[in-house]
Structures are given as structure tokens and as C-alpha cells.
Design a protein around this nucleic acid. Sequence first.
DNA 1: GTCAATTCACATGAAAGAGACCACGGTCTAGTG
DNA 2: CTAGACCGTGGTCTCTTTCATGTGAATTGACGA
Length: 402
Amino acid sequence: MGQKGLINFFESYLQRESIFREKTVLQPNYKPEEVLHRDNEINQIANVLAPALRMEKPSNLFLYGKTGSGKTLSAKYTTDEILSIAKQRDIPIKVIYINCKLSKVADTEYRLVAEIARNLNKVVPATGLPTEEVYKIFFSTLDSSQCILLLVLDEIDQLVNKAGDEVIYNLTRINAELKKSQISIIGISNDLKFTDMLDPRVKSSLSEEEILFHAYNAIQLQHILKTRAKRAFREDVIMEGVIEKCAAYAARDHGDARRALELLRVSGEVAERSGKTKVEIEHIDEAEDKIEKERIMEIIKTQPKQQQATLYSIITLQKNSKGVIFTGEIYDEYKELCKTIGLRPLTQRRLSDIIGELDMFGIINAKVISKGRFGRTREITISVPQSMIPKLKSLLQQVLDV
DNA sequence: GTCAATTCACATGAAAGAGACCACGGTCTAGTG
DNA sequence: CTAGACCGTGGTCTCTTTCATGTGAATTGACGA
């Protein structure tokens, strides 16, 4: 494309009408006016939380269900409704929503409490104070604000994983010491076995009430997608069967509505980029591929150098040896690599953990096997599609400066 | 041939260290009236 | 006299290292048939 061509391109781009009308509707943080197919759950949440309107402390509530089953949405929806009623009637209710996984706002005890305090409009330094001090600050602000606090902790399993369950224990116990305020916790987790790993005391106090969110089935997903698509896209741009296929894809892996919406959105983008005026079924496959690739690239880009070096070693190794690789081989290769690029090599112990991390991300596949007399090790294969590896490799070469 | 002991090459755990970041309080310094 | 610069102390947090212990089956070697 010459430079003249570029201008033409932009002009025709502008002239061409977008297939989207309101793309935000498909974005994950969009909040619809109505939550579909979750009436039951929402009613249950409302039932549990209603006492707050009479200034009584609601039971602690625990919501669980797989990803994309509408937990967060339902919780936010219900608390928003309560909040708006409370505002009309002048009832002092506060809702704090904290996602324990998102960015690093709240993955330790200190940070969580600090974050809550910040939400109560109290300035708390990011670090430097003893944890106890932060608790005190939180205490006094909460008590002086005289309200019912609904604390929504999304992805609470992440928090407990990293910070232990004392945090929750402490939070539930606070009520005893508060005089003018009350706090109740709404925990949200997509790990169904999460409560099993909790200390029994914590478990019983956290899940005074439990609500299980079932995954959406394909029909429900279709309904949701259709409703959103009606607003998100212009009329008649979605070809027959597209919605159905998106729903089917998402239903296949545990009815994740978020995934379904993303798929639909990216399909639209793919269609638009390739100059089509309609979203066709083929675009879905392309979109799925794209989403996966972008996910992997994003993960790798944001990893620390050591992790990247490890992955690079794995890629080089699998090229020469084909098939499976073992931890020892990787460590040797990795040490060599460190020498050439001037990186301080880590111990094998640490590398072992890094391999585990890469496995968690789904970039590689590591299985512990025993080779009998020849020891015990991890058997590692790359689980990124072959077609992506060259691209991956060049990305790594670039960031590692090889 | 059978069976238990041995052995390998790491996996997995726990604990502690290094170094970055930060708040707080005390001391010093320079500018001001 | 006071605001700001500059320590030292004590705190959190992440990434690592060090030390210790665990592990599962191929191999080995003793044993008996």
C-alpha cells in the first residue's frame, strides 16, 4: 500500500459503516439493566441482604460457581439495587466491591485492609505501616461512619491462596468489636472446592449462607447473546447461526458467558477488519484462534525475564530434540542462555518452580514422571500450537535481546 | 524367577535472606521576620 | 522560628537461595526353586 493508498484506505474506512452500534455492550465490564436467567439467585441474594435495610447485619454470604456464570454480575446488580433504595430512604449502607485478583490491589492481608480503608475515603499508604496499624485505621473509620458495610470480595480464593484464611477470620470477627457499624462479607469464588481448604471456623462464619450458581446452558447463552447483540450490532449484520455457534462454543467449556460475549465481539472485529459487512460463522473460528493467541502472547510479554528465558530455552530444546524435554536439560540450556545474554542464572530449585508456573498458564505441559532407576523428573511439552512457535520465538528473542 | 533393597534425578516444602519500596520521627540546615 | 532536606529505624512484599525431605519405578542382587 503506497502512501496515497493509505489515505484512500482511511477514507473508505471512515465511510464504511461499522458493524457495531455500541461495542461496550459486549465488553466484560458492561452491566445490563436486567440480568437474564439469574432470577432465582438474585432473589436469594436479596433475601439474605435485605436485613441491611433495617440496619440489621445481614448474614455473611458465599457465592460460588464456575467462571462466567453471572456471580459477579448478580452480586453487583443486587447490591446496586439495595444501595439505591438505601439512598432514597437515607439508610446508611455502604458497599465496597473488591476484586482480589485484579491488578495487585488486594492480594495480601495488608493490601486488602488498606484497600477497604481507602474505599472508605481514608488515605492509607501502600506500604510502610504495620498491618495492625492499618487494621486500627480501618476500624475507627468504619465505626465512626456508622453504617452497614457490605463487603464484596470477588475471587476470594485468590486472596486466601496468597494471604491465608486468617484475613477472613479477622474480618468476620471485627463485628464483635464494632459498636456503631456492622460488616458483612459477600465472598465470591469460582473454585468449587474452595471452602474445603478453609479453616472450619472461617468456613462456618463465611458461608452462613451459600448460593451455588449453575452454569448457563446453551439455550440461555443464546438468549443472553441475542439480547446483547441486538444493542451491540447494527441490524442484520449477524448471519444466521452465528449466535448459536458462539453459544455452543461457550457451552462446551462450562457455559462461560463472558467467553461467549468475548467470542462474539472478536468475531465482529475480525469481520470488520476483513472488510465484510456481516459477521459470518467462519469468523468465529478465526476469533477463537485469535483470542487464544493473544492471550498467550500477552502472558509471555508480561512475564519477568527469567520466565521468558526459561521458555526460550524450552523452545530451543524442543526444536533439536523434538517431543519431550526434561527439567535437567532445560536447566543446562538455560544456564547457557544466561551466559550469552548476561543474565544471572537462578538455582535449579527456582527453575523448577518457574516451569510449574508456565504450566499453570497453559503455555507448556509439565507432567511429573518417574523414569525408575533414572530418577524422577518432569516431562515437558509445549502446548502452544506449532504455528505460533516461530512468532513466539521472535517475540522472546526481541525481549531477551538474543 | 521372585522379591525387597537400592538408586537416580529431580519434586516438593519450609525457612530464611536480599533488596526494593515506603512511613514515620528526629535532626540538621537555610531562609525568613 | 519554621519549612524542608536528610537520615535511621522499622515495616511489607516479592523473588530467591539454602537446606531438607520425599518419591516412584527401573535396576540390582540375594535368595530359593
